[in-house]
């Protein structure tokens, strides 16, 4: 299915609401295995995104994705800025060719992998994005895909980012980036796929 500009705008604004609501929870998750700023960093980013998106009138899909990328890159401040920023930037580039949702999410995943050099099972955002991209492509995507992907980060030992410093202690904790990515995909279900 294709993602229209109007759907993209509603999707990202819904993501903003979810980050706002769960800001403290995300930081708590990050406190356990990282530096405890994921919630506040993401909140700062999505606030900037909201402002910029609200300025757009009747935008194209590419415009929404690119605006989101630029605001996240310049405002987040932590590693999730370049990572989410690269995801949306790759999606924006792909949207010039196609606005098919599976292709867009796949492009976002490639953007994250390229920027963060993470692979599957490294306990990062990739572990949320990869199963979602795959399920969208295969037509098997559901809410369970998201919940399962996020939950599956728990037993993993972190190989990338600040969480990798605590080694085995990262086992048993949810990855905050995977959780915030889960909100992004839940927002997609609520605003676009419902």
């Amino acid at each position: 299915m294709e993602l229209t500009g109007e759907q993209a705008q509603r999707w990202i604004l819904c993501f903003q609401e979810k980050i706002e609501k769960n800001k403290a929870y995300l930081s708590d998750l990050d406190q356990a295995i990282g530096d405890g700023d994921h919630g506040s960093n993401m909140y700062r980013g999505v606030q900037a995104v909201k402002e910029k998106l609200n300025e757009l009138e009747d935008p194209t899909t590419e415009e929404v994705l690119k605006t989101t990328a630029m605001a996240l890159i310049s405002k987040v401040g932590g590693a999730s800025g370049p990572l989410y920023g690269s995801a949306f930037m790759q999606m924006a580039k792909t949207a010039k060719e196609t606005t098919e949702l599976p292709e867009l999410i796949q492009a976002g995943l490639e953007g994250i992998k390229q920027r963060g050099k993470a692979e599957l099972k490294d306990k990062t955002m990739v572990d949320a994005w990869a199963p979602v991209a795959e399920a969208l492509t295969n037509g098997t995507f559901s809410n369970d895909t998201i919940d399962q992907a996020v939950e599956d980060t728990k037993p993993l030992q972190a190989k990338k980012g600040r969480a990798s410093y605590v080694g085995e202690r990262s086992i048993g904790a949810l990855d905050p980036g995977a959780v915030s990515s889960g909100y992004l995909f839940t927002a997609l279900v609520e605003e676009v796929l419902k």
Partner: peptide
């Protein structure tokens, strides 16, 4: 100093 500064430098 830390990873996210590197990623920002990359960009």
């Amino acid at each position: 100093d830390l990873g996210s500064a590197k990623m920002t430098l990359d960009m």
